[in-house]
Structures are given as structure tokens and as C-alpha cells.
């Protein structure tokens, strides 16, 4: 799964521009799918199994997209002005490098010459791709870029851009593989959805849920941790196992979904953490409010430095998350 994750993070996929990554994931899962399609939003939708005795239709979603930048103006000297796509912290940009979808690379700096005590806004920054002037600049208004930062394997922990949410994508692909290779039937009909445009406001998952009309919605995404120096007051730590979301800023998990997840984790002796996140939310928030409402929850992978070019996860957490997801698909849902 590690080499899969490394391949996934290296494919750029800013919001609305997920095609290359979607094609890659599609190739990975195609032979294991009972049904596969791409919808009008660009969500990749994969069915595995069908509803059996006491089974449910479960929609499991991880998002393909990562935060990015979009060019707004090329000035006469060839500097590129830009704005954000999704939650980009200005402080992570200065001195950093980015890569546009056509492969063009550039560095980010800021107007002016003075020493900086405050972090400037994005409107003061520019990308320099080394173009000599406007006409030499290959980038057009609307072209998009992502962080350019190599993968770093620290052994137990791995560091990369876009772990949010490629780690969720990897967990889902891995789970699909396990289910497929086991040749056992799950009681549930599982819909693996690789969604679009999560980072700009959960835009892909809602329409996917509308199409699928699931009984249960489950997002696989990263969550923050409280284990860094003077970090957030939050009990989730790297390395203590995957987190079962109770609530975040956009969703109260359905209690029966939470109970199901906890019961299955306990039954299979998978260590887990209870998660209450005070910032951010996931695709599950938008699934939950689709049509007449969908009981939803989220299986989270603890992650430090979310939305930075160097997000960090614990490899045991990732593996345990995949095991827990697989077990969930084989266990009955006892809720109503």
C-alpha cells in the first residue's frame, strides 16, 4: 500500500482537475469492480457486492482532489498572480515551489523588499516560473498548480503533500483489493466513491450520494491531531490508531454508525481513537444532507500539518484504518 500511496500523491489533482488521478485509480480498481462509472461531476463510482441478507447499501467516499492554486493574471514581466483553491495557508507558500498541470514548475515569493514580520496575503504573492516576460510565460489565466515537494519516508511515519486525502484513497483501494482477493461476499452492497472538489466545499460527494441513494455514508479522510507542541486541544494522536469521528464542524456522526464502527473495532481488537474535531469537515457532511438524509460517519486517519506541503501520517494508523474498513464491510450493521 505504501508504493500505491506514493504513486497517488505524486499525481497532481487540484479541485476540478482530477482526471489524471481518476484515470490512475480507475486502472487500479477496474478489474475488481462489479460496476464502474464516472458521473457528470467527475466522481469515480465503483460498486462491489450486492445487498445480501440484512445488508445495507454503503457509500464509502474519499476525495481525489488536493488543495491548489489558480493563476489569475500574468504581468508584463511574466510573474504569475494567483489565488487559492481550497484552504491554502499563505504561511506555507513563501519560498515554496509549485507545479502546474503541464509540468511547469515555479517558486513563490512576495512583493516588496522589506523584512517580513507578518505573513502577507496571497494577493501580495506571485509565482515565478523563470519566464522572461509575459509572452514567454506558458501559463494562462485559469491554469492550476499544486505543491511541488518530494515524498519522504521516515519509516514508521511518512510525509508528503496531498496525504489529504490520498491516504483515504489508498485505504479504499487497499480495502477493495482485500475484499476482492478474499473471494468472500460481503453482506453489504459497497459503493466506493472517489469524489471530486471536496477541498472547495464538498461539491462532488452530494451529487454522488443523490445518484446512489445509500443507506449509510462513510467518509475516509484525514483528521487533525493534538499531539504537537502547544497543539490543538484535541485527544487524537499520531500512532494511536484510526479515529472514529463523533463530530466535526460540519457533521454530527449518526450514533448508530459510530456504535457500529466501535463495536467492529473492539471485536477485532483494532485500536481506535474517538474523534471530536473543532475545525474542518468531510464529504460525509454533504452525504448526510442528501435527499431525505443519510446516516453517516467518518473513519479518520490522524494527520499532522494538514494542508501543508508536508503532511505527516503514521503508517500503522493507515494500515489499521484499511483493516477496520474491511472488517466493517463484512460485519452487519445493527442500527435501524
Amino acid at each position: 500500500m505504501k508504493s500505491l500511496l506514493k504513486s497517488l500523491v505524486e499525481i497532481p489533482a487540484p479541485p476540478g482537475h482530477e482526471k489524471e488521478l481518476r484515470d490512475y485509480v480507475r486502472e487500479e480498481v477496474e478489474t475488481m469492480a462489479d460496476e464502474i462509472r464516472v458521473d457528470s461531476m467527475g466522481n469515480l463510482i465503483v460498486r462491489k457486492g450486492e445487498v445480501g441478507e440484512g445488508g445495507k447499501r454503503i457509500m464509502i467516499v474519499s476525495h481525489l482532489d488536493e488543495i491548489g492554486l489558480i493563476a489569475t493574471h500574468i504581468d508584463k514581466r511574466g510573474f504569475i498572480r494567483f489565488t487559492n483553491m481550497g484552504g491554502v495557508y499563505p504561511s506555507y507558500l513563501l519560498g515554496g515551489r509549485v507545479r502546474f498541470l503541464d509540468g511547469t514548475r515555479g517558486v513563490i515569493d512576495v512583493e516588496g523588499t522589506g523584512k517580513r514580520k507578518k505573513v502577507p496575503g496571497l494577493d501580495k504573492m506571485y509565482i515565478d516560473i523563470g519566464a522572461e516576460n509575459e509572452n514567454q510565460c506558458s501559463i494562462k489565466i485559469g491554469d492550476v498548480a499544486v505543491f511541488d515537494r518530494p515524498w519522504l519516508d521516515l519509516g514508521k511515519r511518512v510525509v508528503s503533500k496531498a496525504l489529504d486525502d490520498r491516504v483515504g484513497v489508498a485505504v479504499m483501494v487497499q480495502t477493495l483489493r482485500e475484499v476482492h482477493q478474499s473471494q468472500k461476499r460481503t453482506p453489504h452492497e459497497s459503493w466506493f466513491v472517489f469524489s471530486n472538489q471536496e477541498e472547495v466545499g464538498l461539491r462532488g460527494a452530494g451529487p454522488a450520494a443523490y445518484q446512489l441513494e445509500p443507506d449509510i455514508g462513510l467518509a475516509i479522510d484525514v483528521t487533525r491531531t493534538g499531539d504537537t507542541p502547544q497543539g490543538a486541544k484535541m485527544d487524537v494522536c499520531l500512532g494511536d490508531g484510526p479515529a472514529i469521528k463523533i463530530r466535526d464542524k460540519g457533521m454530527l456522526s449518526h450514533p448508530e454508525v459510530v456504535d457500529w464502527m466501535i463495536d467492529v473495532a473492539q471485536k477485532h481488537k483494532i485500536s481506535y481513537q474517538r474523534e471530536v474535531l473543532e475545525r474542518g469537515t468531510t464529504d460525509a457532511a454533504s452525504i448526510q444532507l442528501t435527499r431525505g438524509g443519510v446516516p453517516s460517519g467518518c473513519l479518520s486517519i490522524p494527520c499532522r500539518y494538514v494542508h501543508s506541503p508536508s503532511e505527516m501520517v503514521d503508517w500503522d494508523d493507515v494500515q489499521q484504518a484499511a483493516i477496520l474498513l474491511e472488517k466493517l464491510l463484512f460485519e452487519p450493521f445493527l442500527g435501524s
Binding site: D39, S40, M41, G206, P207, Q211
Partner: peptide, 9 residues
């Protein structure tokens, strides 16, 4: 509009 129903280009 674009998020309505199953997604509208």
C-alpha cells in the same frame, strides 16, 4: 445549480 440532484454541468 451545479450541485443539484446528481450534478449538473
Amino acid at each position: 445549480i451545479h450541485r443539484q440532484r446528481g450534478g449538473i454541468p
